[in-house]
Simulated scan of single mutants.
Amino acid sequence: MRTALASFGLLALAACSSTPPPPPPAAPAPVSTAQQATAVLASASGSRVSGKLTLAPMGDGVHISGEVGGLTPNGQFGFHVHEKGDCSAVDATSAGAHFNPTDSAHGRAGTASHHAGDMDNIASDAGGVAKVNAHLRGVTLGGGAGNDIAGRAVIVHAAPDDYHTQPTGNAGARLACGVIKVVQ
């Protein structure tokens, strides 16, 4: 009986000290399934702002390039991806709020807290044209993941984003809106 109890005690002690099984491997990060998309920006809110952007997966996000014209010369303008791919309202409010799948506070891209759709302001030249060369980190293009920007809208705002006023950066009216459409 004593031997049986001692054996049982050793087994119980061994069971308590065994290491737990390793956790399952982390799910792979979502990746872009599209190769390229465009956003044709049409004027909103009575402006004359328009343009065309090309979007392509690159590194840790999506690269956005193109031109926006009809802006006030030598100005700064808020520039964001918004949650809905709907530019039907005259003032583009149909595009909803900034794209924010992680429910973060608004801020400057590249800082600890910002919306997934927050980007730096674009700047116009003396002719009222802004050359866009932006990289949006942490998002994908196509594939339907929570951070996918395909089918959402790009908005150009009337004022520069101050990067801290919640929830929009005090960027003002929406001057142009374009839906991100996958082309490849």
Rank of each mutant, 00 (worst) to 15 (best):
A92K: 01
N100T: 02
P160Y: 13
R108Q: 15
S94T: 12
N74S: 12
A158F: 01
L53F: 09
Q76F: 08
R174K: 13
T19F: 11
H80D: 15
N147M: 07
A158V: 01
A150D: 03
G75Q: 04
N133I: 05
D86Q: 05
G110E: 14
I180E: 09
T72S: 11
V81I: 15
A34P: 01
L11Q: 06
E67I: 05
C177A: 07
V179G: 03
V129S: 05
A116Q: 11
K131T: 13
P160K: 09
G9F: 13
L136I: 05
I155S: 01
S18M: 14
S88T: 13
G107E: 10
A44R: 11
A130I: 02
C16P: 00
V182Q: 08
V62N: 07
M58D: 14
A6T: 08
K52G: 08
P25L: 15
A150T: 02
S50W: 12
G107F: 06
S88G: 09
C177K: 06
T93Y: 11
D162E: 08
G142N: 03
A112E: 15
D118W: 02
G178R: 01
D118N: 09
V154M: 08
S7P: 00
G143I: 04
G85H: 07
L41Y: 11
V179L: 12
R174G: 08
S43H: 10
P20W: 13
G172K: 00
Q35L: 12
R174A: 14
G110S: 11
G146Y: 06
N74K: 06
C87F: 13
S124H: 02
D86Y: 05
S50Y: 13
G172V: 02
R137A: 14
G61A: 10
G46D: 12
S47T: 07
S65T: 15
S32N: 00
G151C: 03
S18C: 12
L55H: 06
G51A: 07
G9H: 06
G117C: 09
S43Y: 08
Y163M: 08
G110D: 14
R2N: 13
G9Q: 12
L10M: 04
